[in-house]
């Protein structure tokens, strides 16, 4: 790939984000006029040149139906989370005996920053969880979870985060991520069949993945 074609691909990759900035500008003014379009385009260019950030790798894939499902589900989760936390705060009986929250690690299967970010934001809004830290190299989210008392509940919660990731990948994840999910399912099925030994193997394989990822980051272009 020549340098010129590469630059064109990079610009094409940035185009949706640039359009998003223009749209935001028009949202802020609350009207869609030509003047707003022109000034928005100018400002968007200015902002992306002056405040330069490393380019986000968009996946180039968008499934409208699944995106709508994801957003609706997210809205429902927000409402559910609000009511649930409000109930925890307002419920008359005080039950603070013993630990009732946990900090858990959720190793995601995606290797895309975009999906990692979206999953982090989405899980921050859904019931009872706040992202404390992320580990970009291994795509691990560290979450503080409110209202869990047992390890069974923790496992349940971890599964719900992974389900959120699955919905997001289904909506606008890359093909590699989709394949990785399918692969993870296969491994999980084997693990369920053969028990703890396979789980250990899976942990080892994610560690291998991490080193792969580091190599990819070094070379940069392959992702």
């Amino acid at each position: 790939m020549s340098a010129r074609a590469e630059r064109r691909a990079a610009l094409l990759n940035q185009l949706p984000l640039w359009l998003g900035l223009v749209l935001l500008w028009m949202l802020l003014w609350g009207s869609f006029s030509w003047l707003n379009l022109v000034t928005g385009a100018l400002l968007a260019s200015l902002v992306s040149i002056v405040f330069y950030l490393p380019a986000v790798q968009l996946s180039g894939r968008l499934d409208p139906a699944r995106t709508v499902v994801f957003l609706l589900r997210l809205l429902g989760d927000i409402v559910r989370a609000s009511v649930q936390v409000a109930w925890l705060a307002l419920k008359p009986l005080r039950t603070t005996a013993g630990p009732q929250s946990a900090i858990i690690a959720v190793p995601l299967r995606t290797r895309s920053d975009l999906i990692l970010t979206w999953t982090a934001v989405a899980t921050s809004i859904v019931p009872g969880s706040i992202v404390i830290d992320t580990d970009r190299v291994s795509s691990t989210l560290y979450l503080h979870v409110l209202g869990v008392r047992t390890h069974a509940q923790i496992d349940l919660f971890r599964a719900s985060v992974l389900a959120t990731e699955r919905r997001i990948v289904g909506a606008f994840g890359s093909r590699e991520d989709l394949e990785r999910l399918a692969l993870g399912d296969a491994v999980a099925a084997v693990a369920a069949a053969t028990g703890a030994v396979a789980a250990d193997a899976r942990a080892a394989s994610t560690r291998d993945d991490d080193s792969d990822r580091r190599n990819l980051d070094d070379t940069g272009k392959e992702t």
Binding site: I78, V85, A89, L90, I130, H144
Partner: peptide, 27 residues
């Protein structure tokens, strides 16, 4: 109101964060 009460009743910083972020979004 729930956010405010949660601030008072939850025992530590991390729990209070939950009260601080979620109910208002719905509100």
């Amino acid at each position: 109101l729930a956010a405010g009460v949660g601030l008072l009743r939850f025992p530590d910083v991390l729990s209070r964060l939950h009260a601080a972020t979620k109910p208002q979004i719905f509100g």
